[in-house]
Amino acid sequence: MAPKVDGIEEEEISRMESGGVTNSNSNSNSQSNAKQGFCFSPIVVTTAQKVVAEIIGTYFVIFAGCGSVVVNKLYGETVTFPGICVTWGLIVMVMIYTVGHVSGAHFNPAVTITSALFRRFPWKEVPLYIIAQLMGSILASGTLSLMFDVTEKAYFGTLPVGSNGQSLAIEIIISFLLMFVVSGVGTDSRAIGEFGGIAVGMTIMLNVFVAGPISGASMNPARSIGPAIVKHEYRGLWVYVVGPIIGTISGAFAYNLIRFTNKPISELTKNGSFLRNKSNDDSS
């Protein structure tokens, strides 16, 4: 038993003099931390910020892009098809520069899944991002439905104009191009990052020009699922889920094959680093 001074053990005095805390204080602090730790954890706060950014970003991408479709169909082709293409490209570019530094500006479940597959994004956040993207799309689609008298002719979702196979093929191709560009400007340290948003926005615009009259140029499951749920129009919806996912995975894989590395191909295929795509493998 340690000797006491005025009823306080010398060990306790020693701990207090050295800047330590008493057992009672430790218990109190641990209980306080337990109450505040989860909600105020930096990880939880940061993840919540990312999710909110994805909801808001996806909302305005769908609101502006699909809104241009609705306005064009309901008000005598005032926006025009080129105007719709430019609108999609501009809104994606604007939102990339607005929240890209917060969440990465995915706005697209296919991009999120592909990023996680190639070790550019944590798998644990994938469900949260997909839920956020779908929520943003549904909210935007609901807003447009409340604002406009959306007839069947003015439907702002995506439907195959020809066969499902034709639309599937073109969705794979344009999604390939989109992810190929994203991989080049967004994940390669040699790229000029400041122009990444412009490159991605221009790619969206070009893809809508080419594929818009055929498939609607979705490239994004959330872009098609949101309007489908709100307007209860599910024809060919699987095309806009399967096509973009296959296309984005293929596009990322293709870029990783041509990405510069100082390792021989035999070593890349042996340890799988062409999939992992670590930044330290890419430095020249």
Rank of each mutant, 00 (worst) to 15 (best):
G243I: 01
G193F: 11
F156M: 13
Q133D: 07
T80V: 08
S137D: 02
L275S: 01
L268V: 10
E10D: 12
T98A: 08
P160E: 06
M219K: 02
I173P: 00
E10N: 09
T269H: 10
I172A: 06
F107H: 02
I265V: 14
D281Q: 04
Y255M: 10
V99E: 03
K35P: 01
L128D: 07
I204S: 00
N220P: 08
V241Q: 02
A116Y: 09
V102Y: 00
R276Q: 09
M93C: 09
G186F: 10
E233Q: 14
I62Q: 01
A116E: 06
W238S: 13
K263N: 09
E54F: 05
L268H: 05
I138Q: 03
A132F: 07
A222K: 04
M202I: 14
A154Y: 03
I55E: 01
Y75C: 00
V99C: 08
N25G: 02
R15A: 04
L74Q: 05
S32K: 13
E9M: 07
I113L: 15
G272F: 03
Q31G: 10
S224M: 00
G37V: 00
K4C: 14
A132T: 03
S283N: 15
V45K: 05
Q166K: 15
T98N: 03
I13H: 06
W88F: 15
I249E: 13
F180A: 07
D282K: 15
T151P: 00
E233V: 13
C66V: 08
G83P: 05
P42L: 00
T187Q: 01
I258N: 05
W238L: 07
S32M: 15
L144H: 02
V239T: 04
T269L: 14
T58Y: 07
F107C: 04
I130C: 12
L178Q: 06
P221V: 00
R259D: 10
V44Q: 10
Q133N: 06
G19P: 00
V111R: 03
Q31M: 12
N33D: 14
I131W: 03
R120K: 13
G20K: 08
N164Y: 12
N108R: 08
H101A: 10
I249F: 12
A34G: 10
G7K: 00
G186T: 09
T114Q: 03
M95S: 07
I265Q: 13
P122D: 08
K263V: 07
R119S: 14
S284K: 13
E194M: 12
G184N: 11
K153Y: 15
P213C: 08
G193M: 08
R15L: 04
T87Q: 05
I173M: 04
F195I: 15
G212Q: 01
T158S: 12
T22K: 04
S137Y: 02
Y59Q: 01
I131K: 04
G89Q: 04
G201W: 05
P42Q: 00
V208M: 08
V61I: 11
N23V: 08
R235K: 14
T143C: 15
A217I: 07
V69K: 09
V52W: 06
S163C: 01
F195H: 14
E11D: 14
I198C: 06
S183A: 13
P109Y: 05
S283L: 15
Y255A: 02
V161R: 13
W123N: 09
F274Y: 15
F176N: 02
I84S: 00
A169T: 11
